[in-house]
């Protein structure tokens, strides 16, 4: 498409509940809609959606396009992508933002290819240029810079947004959105994918994204045996363990629950301690809201020292045991 109007955000739902990232998108969407002076419109696919639609009005949507059908109860890429394409072609939005959750990252590229437009992946910030075009901000290669990705010719201007990077708006009880009901003609027989069931994992450890103290280990930890030191320090501080990407690739840490940064979790602890972390922007963007940042790295030129409040240029294997000892004196 060569034109479009309105800022659309995709609202992911699970088990009949609006996801947190959906509400965050309404927050950033409102800001963008203000900049281009257009409406903020939410798209919701699900089943028995009534209360969710009300929620979206309360969190700032001007319009809610809602498709309500048993086929849409659980995410199904065949059904969702076809429906989204129809909707985009009919209503021609100017921008479309989807959360970079697993479901959003599955849906958005397929839809972008269907309507033949560009897609900026995993953005952690947005802006609008002087022509009203969406700029998606992503940490650049190697992690030293931030790149602005633009889609200069095609509409809608699409992007996925990292969960946890945007603030949702204050809930306004009774604030209502216009509701546009979308007819669902698609049937299970028309598509190849069939949902058999869903399962939910219970949380075991305290998730790193809500911990008040985070101790993160990097590639400098060097091996599984040494990883214990990271955990011991976290224990001494009653905190949670996080990681950069390489330890997750190596299997010392868990990618899904512990990786911090652009492609992982965003943490907001009062205290973050990085051990053997070099300080790539990909990781730093996930810790920048920490109140105090401490870095222990044996290379005094490691970039993380610039982003830290306190730096210790030493081998973590020497510092951590002393630190644990010292902490005993305050925790008793």
């Amino acid at each position: 498409m060569k034109e479009g109007k309105g800022v659309w955000v995709f609202i992911e739902q699970r088990g009949g509940k609006v996801s947190e990232v959906g509400l965050e998108l309404l927050g950033i969407g409102r800001e963008l809609a203000g900049k281009v002076n257009e409406k903020l419109e939410a798209v919701l696919f699900g089943y028995q959606t009534g209360s969710m639609v009300d929620e979206l009005g309360a969190y700032g949507a001007d319009t809610v396009y809602v498709a309500d059908d048993p086929l849409l109860e659980v995410y199904n890429s065949d059904a969702y992508a076809v429906l989204m394409q129809e909707l985009i072609e009919q209503y021609k939005p100017g921008m479309m933002i989807v959360g970079a959750s697993n479901i959003g990252s599955d849906l958005a590229p397929r839809v972008a290819a269907k309507v033949n437009t560009g897609l900026s992946a995993h953005c952690i910030g947005f802006d609008v240029d002087e022509h009203g075009k969406l700029l998606g901000k992503v940490p650049g290669f190697g992690g030293a810079v931030m790149a602005d990705i633009i889609c200069p010719e095609d509409y809608p201007q699409m992007a996925t947004a990292r969960p946890g990077f945007f603030q949702k708006l204050e809930r306004v009880e009774g604030r209502k959105a216009d509701v546009v009901k979308v007819e669902v003609k698609l049937r299970q027989e028309d598509i190849n994918i069939k949902v058999l069931g869903t399962s939910k994992e219970e949380l075991t450890a305290r998730p790193v994204e809500s911990a008040d103290v985070v101790v993160a280990g990097g590639f400098g930890i060097g091996g599984e045996e040494n990883w214990k030191l990271v955990e011991e320090l976290a224990d001494a501080l009653n905190g949670s363990v996080g990681a950069t990407r390489p330890p997750c690739d190596e299997g010392w840490a868990d990618l899904e629950s512990q990786m911090i940064g652009q492609s992982g979790k965003t943490v907001r602890p009062s205290l973050y301690i990085g051990l053997g972390v070099s300080g790539a922007v990909h990781h730093l963007v996930g810790i920048q809201d920490s109140k105090v940042i401490v870095a222990i790295n044996k290379d005094s030129k490691a970039p993380i020292f610039e982003a830290a409040d306190y730096g210790i240029a030493a081998d973590f294997r020497q510092i951590v045991p002393s630190l644990i000892e010292e902490l005993k004196s305050i925790t008793g």
């Binding site: 033949n116 437009t117 560009g118 897609l119 900026s120 240029d129 700029l135 940490p139 650049g140 030293a144 810079v145 931030m146 790149a147 602005d148 990705i149 633009i150 889609c151 200069p152 010719e153 095609d154 922007v281 730093l284 963007v285 920048q288 940042i293 610039e306 982003a307 830290a308 409040d309």
Partner: peptide, 14 residues
């Protein structure tokens, strides 16, 4: 369809 419009360094200094 997508292009890099610009590159900025980000301020993460403490």
């Amino acid at each position: 369809p997508t292009q890099v419009a610009g590159v900025t360094t980000i301020e993460l200094k403490r």
